[in-house]
């Protein structure tokens, strides 16, 4: 009798430990998904950061949605779910704040970017300097003015028109050469890389290491250029606030900044 009791006592903890093990084995298998809405210009670095985050946080999946910042802000305004919003301009982050999807003053600047003129590798229009954008017959593609990069492109043209090195009619003449206002910056880049037009204005970060062979570029001097600050923020009704926070921390960390710099972004912490 005692022996039997002894056996039971020995086996009991084993059984309970096994039964305890079952849920604790199952729990981590449940993958958590965080949705990151990011400006189209962040496609390459954020894809890489997403993978990095997944490797640091087992059983977590990062779903990335890339589109023009204006479109993402609009989607957020209409109630689209999300955990993190990374915008190419403060304006559309403010729009998300307005829509009560992002807490006020919670956004952080995580990267900076600048404009660059690109042309197809074979340079069909023989573009040699920025003044050449006004050449009659040159086919120019800009991003639509609703897209941050499109708005800044117009700013650049304004500044250049005021600059003695350019004609005062520079902006008007250049705008006559525009054949399309694309809906996001990646479409501008792709169409130039395909050689469908002679020049386009994109972020320097859009010239990816892979694509560097497809396009040539002309620098826009600092005085005429626009240094765009990219803000990032957690969505206030995020289902995974901790993970959202952790993702933002990764973007701000030296490792995250390094990834951004690899794609020609300017670090937010010089």
């Amino acid at each position: 009798m005692l022996k039997v009791l002894q056996r039971i006592l020995i086996v009991m903890p084993l059984i309970t430990s096994v039964s305890c093990d079952i849920p604790s084995q199952l729990e981590p298998v449940q993958t958590q998904i965080i949705f990151v809405l990011a400006a189209a210009s962040l496609t390459e670095p954020f894809s890489e950061l997403g993978k990095l985050f997944e490797s640091q946080h087992p059983n977590t999946k990062v779903e990335l949605s890339f589109a023009g910042s204006q479109q993402l802000a609009q989607q957020l305004g209409q109630g689209a779910p999300g955990d993190v919003f990374a915008s190419a301009s403060q304006k559309y982050l403010d729009a998300a704040v307005q829509a009560n999807r992002v807490a006020k003053d919670k956004a952080q600047i995580f990267a900076k970017n600048r404009l660059v003129v690109i042309y197809p590798k074979d340079n069909p229009a023989g573009l040699e300097d920025l003044q050449g954008l006004a050449k009659p017959g040159l086919k120019l593609i800009l991003a639509a003015k609703e897209v941050p990069v499109g708005e800044y492109s117009l700013d650049f043209l304004d500044k250049a028109s005021d600059d003695p090195a350019f004609s005062p009619m520079f902006k008007a003449t250049v705008l006559k050469n525009v054949v399309s206002f694309e809906e996001n910056v990646k479409a501008v880049y792709t169409k130039i890389a395909l050689g469908e037009a002679d020049a386009g204005i994109v972020w320097i970060s859009d010239i990816t290491p892979d694509g560097a062979g497809q396009v040539g570029s002309l620098d826009i001097p600092e005085a005429l250029n626009l240094i765009a600050a990219y803000p990032i923020a957690a969505i206030s009704d995020s289902k995974h606030p901790d993970l959202a926070r952790a993702f933002i921390d990764l973007v701000m960390s030296p490792a995250g900044q390094q990834v951004l710099q690899k794609y020609h972004f300017i670090s937010a912490f010089p």
């Binding site: 204006q70 609009q74 639509a144 609703e146 525009v178 206002f181 694309e182």
Partner: peptide
Amino acid sequence: AGNFPGRTQTMPLAIYMGFEI
């Protein structure tokens, strides 16, 4: 055809661009 008002921006394109702004 790209998107250029008056040249290639048809109604569906204008709806898409308009949706954002």
